[in-house]
């Protein structure tokens, strides 16, 4: 089945959103602008998820990433007051930027070569095992299938994930809390904070 024109339009618009947001994250001087670029990327990925028919994952992407994690980033930026621009010209290690760019181009080249080479082996009957809403199942088919998988095959991993979240939240509260006795510990480390 060939892709229609409108599907290509959706794909490439979302791809432009994703890549533009990603470049914004690494190129913007202000951390607030970087966080907004991250929002753009996350929404673009959510659009791709919807286009792929993974509706539940798309909604979770919006709620968890754009709704919770980015707000957490912005909250930390505002809380610490570090939303001033940083000088991007400072290069701590000589040649770090050129080497990083070479590594990035090499990574794209290697991954792209592997993907293009593996193209033929991917061309097996697409989507036959998935319930697609509106085609071969009801409107909540994707959620039902994902739920059956999560609470069937992966129920142990799901419980471990809940334990992980509880431990992460508790640990963060412990790390972030200002204990009365250790209030003076920060005085010794002031020397290295000059910019």
């Amino acid at each position: 089945m060939n892709a229609t024109f409108i599907e290509y339009v959706v794909f490439f618009s979302a791809a432009v959103m994703i890549l533009g947001g990603a470049i914004g994250v690494i190129a913007m001087k202000s951390p607030v602008h970087a966080a907004l670029g991250l929002v753009l990327t996350l929404f673009g990925v959510a659009v791709q998820f919807v286009a792929l028919g993974a509706h539940f994952v798309a909604v979770v992407q919006i709620i968890v990433y754009a709704g919770a994690i980015v707000v957490l980033f912005l909250f930390v930026i505002m809380l610490l007051g570090i939303d001033r621009t940083m000088d991007l010209q400072v290069e701590p290690i000589p040649l770090q930027r050129p080497l990083a760019l070479v590594m990035g181009v090499g990574l794209v080249g290697l991954l792209g070569a592997a993907i293009v080479r593996a193209r033929d082996s991917l061309a097996i009957n697409p989507g036959t095992g998935l319930a697609v809403a509106g085609e071969n199942a009801g409107h909540d088919a994707n959620i039902q299938q994902l739920g059956a998988s999560l609470y069937g095959d992966y129920v142990f991993a799901l419980e471990l994930a809940s334990v992980l979240l509880i431990v992460a939240v508790t640990g963060t509260v412990l790390v972030t809390r200002r204990w009365p006795r250790s209030a003076g510990l920060g005085d010794g480390g002031q020397g290295g904070s000059d910019q």
Binding site: M1, A15, V25, A51, A100, G104, I115, R119, E135
Partner: peptide, 26 residues
Amino acid sequence: MIAVIEPTWYLLLSALLFSIGAVGLL
């Protein structure tokens, strides 16, 4: 049968996004 765009395109987009993230981390 929903993904009529070849997965190769998605994988290439994913590779680009991953590389941008890696370069930014560096």
